[in-house]
């Protein structure tokens, strides 16, 4: 019936219409705070990051080593069996250079980010993190990288205890 309708309803406004008060506006800022429990698997994962190590969980059924660790295997749908340390080296699975911050505001110096397949985890098991100490033009899929840790005293049990990953 696309042809039958001559008028498609809606009243467009520009951002100037909002700023200039052409129409009434109502403002609100929700002020909800959250405290998420880290759970069993992430609890140990974060604890080990504080120790400068990366830990995963192994499922004996499919033999996968999973990072980030989880207490269940979502494919076999059974509990995972054991804790396994993986290496703090890996290979870039894919990467990007972000000229946007978290609020989509423009930034001048791009943030290099990557999915890194970890040595010692199963093929294709990677984590999202940032890259550093690297010429953006040289980054490529398959590049070998290693974790650069914060000094032990500054580590707090966070994914950001790894500052970034740098080329080997």
């Amino acid at each position: 019936m696309s042809e039958k309708f001559k008028e498609f309803p809606g009243t467009p406004l520009s951002s100037r219409d909002i700023k200039s008060g052409k129409v009434l506006t109502f403002k609100w800022r929700p002020n909800a705070k959250y405290a998420w429990t880290v759970g069993i698997a992430y609890g140990r994962f974060l604890e080990e990051l504080k120790n400068g190590r990366i830990i995963g969980r192994k499922c004996r059924e499919c033999s996968r080593v999973l990072v980030p660790p989880r207490m269940f295997c979502e494919q076999c749908f059974r509990p995972t069996d054991e804790w396994v340390f993986v290496k703090n080296t890996g290979r870039i699975n894919t990467f990007s250079l972000s000229y946007l911050d978290a609020d989509a505001r423009r930034i001048k110096t791009p943030i290099p980010v990557a999915v890194i397949d970890l040595d010692g985890a199963s093929p294709g098991i990677g984590i999202l993190h940032k890259l550093g100490n690297v010429d953006p033009k040289r980054i490529h899929i398959g590049m070998r990288v290693r974790a650069v840790w914060k000094p032990a005293k500054q580590r707090e049990g966070s994914i950001t205890d790894i500052k970034y990953w740098e080329p080997i």
Partner: peptide
């Protein structure tokens, strides 16, 4: 937190 600002039209 889940911080966002909202501006609603009437």
């Amino acid at each position: 937190d889940m911080e966002c600002d909202y501006i609603y039209t009437a």
